[in-house]
Design a protein around this nucleic acid. Structure first.
Lengths: 328, 328
DNA sequence: CTGAAAGCGCTTACAG
DNA sequence: CTGAAAGCGCTTACAG
């Protein structure tokens, strides 16, 4: 059961390892190697069940065919699906993935980035929790292949894939108005250094008929449940009839709290950024601004591979994808 | 910015690469290398920001410090959390993960297994969709390090981690009875070659006060939504007052269908295997048999590492963990 | 059209 | 207490 190597094929055929390597890497024609010899090599490789040793190859080539992926939390459905999309695309192209979670912990994120680089990844796809682009400026200066997803930084010269958060949030607010809502509230996250969140807030404010009506509820990101409880209590005394949640975590917490309180909030229209299965099942109904998760993942991998293929004079790209309104 | 190698450290210190390697791998004392020399090496390594090349190491050692993980679907919360648990434990021990999804496709599973082995993983953690242990008998014969999780096979000499499905299902049925249920129905999956599912059915039947009361509804695994619709229609004419769902996918589909129909099934008590957040939020209330997901993942990694450490005379273990009843 | 040789960066007997 | 050398399995100039 010992694994066959190039040498085994070469010896059993009476040719050199170099020739075998060339043929198996598809450079046979280019190098003008005899068609019949090529065929013999391929047959023998199959017969011996030859599996190239990626590590010998990696050592020689200087690449490892491994992409690092860092997300806040893979058990959050949004990131679960994103990783799935990335995995699928990467796998098709012959790349492995190393996936890690930060749990929004900035220190852990720093450590993970250097750990992954220590493990010789070829490139990194990052949904960062950093509050500042300075944290990853080092990567950019080292010209390390990096693609930001979901959360990006303004005026930052790296590849990125995000969605039109401002436009999406606008769509959400306009939907609320179309349902007869007079005064929509935004359930937001604090602190709001994460680009996606701040853009959604900006979209919310921009879409208000009367900007003075803006009502932003800050929910602490490390205690979403508690923040929602406080928010609901506070709003009891206010005159509002629509809620826009900036992400699915907040909407989930809101729904859970309503379930606990036995309140169905019948006079309030709710919409959330991020569409999740839950919204199909639960009362009250929650509409959503859905993100094209598959395309985000696919595009991120594509950008990385373009960069690999074109290391010297790569032009960075900021891809922005559109969202879709799901009415319920 | 070129990465430092052993050679760089050795030359700048006037010692040999071998010595540096020994010290950095913690074998300095064992080999009786001068304490001061050791210290100098460590300082210089840090100064040069030395990162060992895992691929050179892997090539030499014959290991890659990479574990393959194959699950049906990482965007299913259960498997998402399982992967998270595995990742955490593996990462702590210095192992990378390559995660892949089968989507219950047996052909894809076969391909993934050989793909991962081609990528020189050291071992595999597998939640298999295979209907027979024959499919992985080859791995066992090759003595490839393998741990089955969640879904295992009877009388099969490989490491595995599962939960006490029979006892868990019994607990579920007994809970229904304690709530005054007279006739509990089981929403099951078909075909039922997956061990976890068949064991849960067995537990359901075993716990019935009157085995003649057994009512098993078969829901096709590739059309759960449709199966639930049919089941609900069929049961309209029957006299039942409790439902036991064999997994969270079925419970989710049931809840969604009830939401669509606007039916709250007020006279029926529901319980599901697998606890998910959703059950906290939704009406009707769903109780659950929760699995110790973290421990499952942790144990799987542990078994694999024990096997690595003790390749020659490893005794396989079948670890079975307990479930917890969550009343709602 | 093909082969011999060097070298990627590491670890591990072996020798002294 | 330390070093010189071999070799893991591959790819790629170079030579003919």
């Amino acid at each position: 059961m010992k694994k066959a190597s190039l040498k085994d094929i070469a010896e059993s055929l009476g040719v050199s390892k170099a020739l075998v390597s060339l043929v198996l890497n598809g450079k046979g024609d280019e190098r003008g190697i005899n068609k019949q010899t090529q065929e013999k090599v391929r047959v023998k490789a199959k017969e011996l069940n030859y599996i190239p040793n990626q590590y010998a190859r990696g050592l020689r080539i200087g690449r490892t065919n491994t992409i690092g992926v860092i997300v806040p939390d893979i058990s959050n459905v949004f990131y679960g699906k994103l990783c799935k999309a990335i995995e699928q695309e990467a796998y098709d192209k012959g790349y492995n993935l190393i996936i890690s979670n930060t749990y929004e912990d900035v220190q852990k994120e720093k450590k993970l980035i250097s750990d992954l680089i220590n493990r010789n990844i070829d490139g990194l796809i990052l949904a960062s929790s950093f509050d500042s682009k300075n944290e990853i400026d080092g990567l950019r200066n080292d010209k390390f292949p990096l693609v930001l997803v979901d959360r990006v930084f303004d005026d930052f010269d790296v590849d990125s894939v995000s969605v039109s958060n401002v436009a999406g949030a606008k769509k959400a607010v306009e939907f609320l108005y179309s349902k007869g809502v007079k005064r929509p509230v935004c359930f937001s996250l604090s602190p709001v250094y994460i680009s996606s969140i701040s853009e959604r807030i900006q979209g919310y404010i921009g879409a208000l008929k009367n900007p003075d009506d803006a009502k932003l509820v800050q929910i602490p990101h490390n205690d979403i449940e508690g923040g929602v409880v406080t928010a609901l209590a506070e709003l009891k005394n206010e005159d509002y009839d629509g809620i826009f949640c900036v992400n699915n975590n907040i909407a989930k917490a809101l729904l859970r709290e309503l379930a606990i309180q036995g309140d169905q909030l019948t006079n309030v229209e709710i919409i959330s950024f991020d569409d999740i299965e839950l919204f199909d099942i639960v009362i009250p109904k929650v509409s959503a601004i859905a993100q094209p998760i598959k395309e985000i993942g696919k595009t991120a991998v594509k950008l990385l591979l373009e960069r690999f293929a074109n290391e010297d004079n790569h032009k960075t790209k900021g891809v922005v994808l559109d969202t879709v309104l799901i009415e319920r």
